[in-house]
Deep mutational scan, measured.
Amino acid sequence: NQASVVANQLIPISTALTLVMMRSEVVTPVGIPAEDIPRLVSMTVNRAVPLGTTLMPDMVKGYA
């Protein structure tokens, strides 16, 4: 089972991601792979991401 990136807090729309905002967790459905966390830092989300939500590729500008 692959770990995915999960929001560690509410991430408001257009917020630049930082390490403290994300954690890795094995979830269903599978989202962005946890090993991509370093790549996600400073990318922005294009929607509000509630606490505990799995980050999907279409939620992060420039990721997909």
Results as ranks from 00 to 15, higher is better:
residue 29 P to R: 04
residue 55 L to A: 02
residue 14 S to Q: 14
residue 4 S to P: 03
residue 44 T to P: 07
residue 6 V to E: 01
residue 40 L to F: 02
residue 50 P to S: 09
residue 44 T to N: 10
residue 7 A to D: 01
residue 25 E to N: 08
residue 40 L to A: 00
residue 7 A to V: 06
residue 6 V to D: 01
residue 1 N to M: 15
residue 44 T to C: 08
residue 21 M to E: 03
residue 27 V to E: 00
residue 12 P to S: 06
residue 22 M to H: 00
residue 42 S to V: 03
residue 2 Q to N: 14
residue 3 A to H: 11
residue 9 Q to G: 05
residue 11 I to G: 02
residue 58 D to I: 09
residue 30 V to G: 07
residue 3 A to T: 13
residue 4 S to K: 01
residue 22 M to G: 01
residue 32 I to D: 00
residue 28 T to K: 06
residue 32 I to G: 02
residue 46 N to C: 10
residue 9 Q to T: 15
residue 31 G to S: 01
residue 30 V to W: 10
residue 47 R to F: 08
residue 40 L to D: 00
residue 24 S to K: 08
residue 55 L to P: 00
residue 51 L to Q: 15
residue 40 L to E: 00
residue 31 G to P: 01
residue 10 L to F: 14
residue 22 M to D: 02
residue 41 V to M: 06
residue 47 R to A: 11
residue 5 V to Q: 02
residue 60 V to M: 05
residue 63 Y to C: 04
residue 31 G to N: 01
residue 18 T to R: 08
residue 47 R to V: 15
residue 21 M to T: 03
residue 61 K to C: 15
residue 43 M to N: 05
residue 6 V to C: 05
residue 26 V to D: 15
residue 10 L to A: 13
residue 4 S to D: 00
residue 13 I to V: 12
residue 31 G to K: 01
residue 57 P to G: 06
residue 54 T to C: 05
residue 38 P to Y: 08
residue 41 V to C: 06
residue 57 P to D: 05
residue 36 D to F: 10
residue 51 L to R: 08
residue 62 G to M: 07
residue 28 T to V: 13
residue 36 D to C: 15
residue 25 E to R: 06
residue 40 L to H: 00
residue 49 V to H: 02
residue 31 G to C: 03
residue 48 A to Q: 14
residue 60 V to P: 01
residue 25 E to A: 11
residue 22 M to L: 11
residue 21 M to K: 00
residue 48 A to R: 14
residue 9 Q to H: 11
residue 57 P to M: 07
residue 34 A to G: 08
residue 56 M to T: 10
residue 48 A to K: 10
residue 64 A to R: 12
residue 50 P to H: 10
residue 39 R to G: 09
residue 31 G to L: 02
residue 9 Q to P: 01
residue 1 N to D: 15
residue 63 Y to S: 04
residue 32 I to C: 04
residue 5 V to H: 00
residue 48 A to G: 09
residue 19 L to D: 06
residue 7 A to R: 01
residue 40 L to R: 03
residue 33 P to A: 13
residue 22 M to A: 01
residue 51 L to N: 14
residue 19 L to M: 11
residue 7 A to P: 01
residue 59 M to Y: 14
residue 14 S to D: 15
residue 61 K to N: 14
residue 53 T to V: 15
residue 34 A to Y: 07
residue 8 N to W: 03
residue 47 R to H: 12
residue 63 Y to W: 14
residue 12 P to Q: 10
residue 37 I to Y: 02
residue 4 S to C: 07
residue 42 S to W: 10
residue 44 T to A: 10
residue 21 M to P: 01
residue 33 P to D: 05
residue 3 A to P: 14
residue 19 L to Y: 11
residue 38 P to A: 12
residue 42 S to F: 07
residue 48 A to M: 13
residue 3 A to M: 12
residue 22 M to W: 03
residue 61 K to S: 09
residue 12 P to L: 07
residue 27 V to I: 07
residue 19 L to V: 10
residue 23 R to S: 07
residue 36 D to N: 07
residue 15 T to E: 07
residue 61 K to F: 11
residue 45 V to A: 05
residue 43 M to C: 10
residue 18 T to H: 05
residue 63 Y to R: 04
residue 36 D to T: 06
residue 62 G to T: 04
residue 46 N to E: 10
residue 14 S to I: 04
residue 37 I to P: 00
residue 10 L to G: 10
residue 12 P to Y: 05
residue 23 R to Y: 05
residue 60 V to F: 05
residue 53 T to P: 01
residue 38 P to Q: 09
